[in-house]
Computed example of a mutant assay.
Amino acid sequence: MTHEDVVLVGVDGSPASLHAVDWAAALAKVHGFGLHLVCSYSMPSFTAAALDGGYAALDDTAIAEGARAVLDEAVARIAPTGVRTTSAVATGDAAAILVELSRGAAAVVVGTRGRGGFAERLLGTVSSALPAHAHCPTVVVPFRPEKPAASSRGTGTTPQEAATGPQEPVTGPEVAVAGGWAIGAPSEDAAGRPVVRRIVVGVDGSPAAEAALTRAVHEAEIWGAELTALAAVPVGTGAGILAWLPAAVDHEAVLRDVAEGLDVVVDRALADHPGVQVRRHVLDGTGAALLTEFSSAVDLVIVGSRGRGGFAGLLLGSTSQAVLHHAACPVMVVTTRASAEEWSPTELS
């Protein structure tokens, strides 16, 4: 089974969903895909006891017209991009509708924290449910800027340096400085539209993480972006699952072993992509904390979902939900279900 060349995006009229539309249009354009916009609504339901006479005639004409107006606004918004676009109004639960439609999409994009739009829809709940059930990779686009997390412990390497190399101090209205490293504004093209110039992918050696790495390499190649592969190892004092190791255990040796495993999976992913360069970093900390911190320095975070096992017994599967809730940039979630059954790089070329 292969996906059609279309990016699916949920729209509810909120600023968050319109921001997601912008990002989805950029993704569609760089891949040469089309864009399909969907606005859904549900009719209110009442118990018979709550109604005079036991029933009520509900006319959804006005609601459907409102949904169509939301779609028309979104279509007009992205018309200058030249991306071929279709749109549809659907009735039912937004998450369920997008999951079903994802069977025929290359990717699905939603916004998060979108309150106050058409029919007071809340995309936050959709963005939480969709990645685990979609039949293709899901991109969740945050609307508001996030404050960066505290810098990584005991590494001497900041996320900005790891993602983009050593940096000169940067100042100005478009840059916030926190924790001793510069946080750049989201990358945009000359027309002010979102682009992806820096990508970070979480890697732990699990099948889900390898699927995410494969997708990240392809995205880096398509966008011409810098790619960083990150393995998180909580070996520092009090830092989590490896902190209990006895003093006789060489923590540096643990880091070296993980780095060797990282090299193996990255080299395998690059076998058919000789032009892509990947920075590789093994850092002390948890995957969720480090990827969230990196999200302030890059344009896209890519994670696998439900990945268990892998080299050094690390766990990435629980990371995706935490990153989705706290990342400052768009997050792409690649599940083993989507990668194995629905997607391969050749289908997106």
Rank of each mutant, 00 (worst) to 15 (best):
S206W: 06
T61E: 02
L51T: 08
L51A: 01
T47Y: 10
G205I: 07
I97Y: 08
V201N: 05
G117T: 15
L316V: 15
E221P: 01
T47V: 12
A225T: 02
V278Q: 05
A56G: 05
A232W: 14
A149H: 12
G114P: 04
A94S: 13
A247F: 14
T157A: 08
D204M: 05
P194G: 01
G180F: 05
E219Y: 00
S128D: 15
A212R: 12
G156Q: 12
H31K: 03
V331E: 03
S40C: 14
H135A: 10
R279V: 00
L283C: 09
A76I: 04
P15K: 07
A216C: 04
R121V: 08
H133M: 11
K147S: 12
T47L: 06
D263S: 00
V298R: 03
G202W: 12
A64D: 15
R121Y: 03
S305N: 11
T346S: 13
T138F: 07
V108N: 06
R144C: 13
S14Q: 13
L316H: 06
S187Y: 01
A90S: 05
V200A: 02
R306A: 08
E342K: 05
R279M: 02
G124K: 10
V140E: 01
D22K: 03
A119Q: 11
R103T: 04
A96G: 08
S14M: 06
A190G: 07
A220K: 02
L283H: 11
A20W: 05
L37G: 01
G224T: 00
L122P: 10
T112I: 10
T214K: 09
A62H: 04
P15R: 09
A150N: 11
R115F: 15
R308I: 15
L324T: 10
T2Q: 09
L71T: 10
A328E: 04
R306L: 06
T319W: 10
E342C: 09
T81F: 04
A94D: 11
G154P: 05
A132D: 15
W244M: 11
S318P: 13
H133I: 07
G66C: 15
G124D: 10
A62D: 09
L291P: 07
F118G: 04
S349H: 10
T86C: 08
L300Y: 05
W223I: 01
V141G: 00
Q321V: 14
V278D: 04
A289S: 15
V196E: 00
G114C: 09
S187T: 01
Q277T: 13
S42F: 08
A178V: 14
F118W: 14
E221W: 02
T237F: 14
G54M: 06
G224Q: 01
M1A: 12
V126T: 12
D93K: 05
G238E: 14
R337N: 07
V6P: 08
A57Q: 15
S152E: 06
H135M: 07
C39V: 14
T91I: 07
L101R: 13
L18W: 14
L242K: 03
H36A: 04
V278Y: 00
D284C: 01
S206Y: 07
G285C: 03
Q160C: 05
R268S: 13
T61N: 07
V201K: 02
D72C: 02
V139G: 04
Q277H: 12
S17H: 09
G156K: 06
A322T: 12
G180D: 00
P166L: 15
A162F: 11
H133R: 11
L37H: 01
F46N: 01
V70Q: 09
R268C: 03
G240I: 11
I241F: 14
P234A: 04
R144P: 15
L324Q: 10
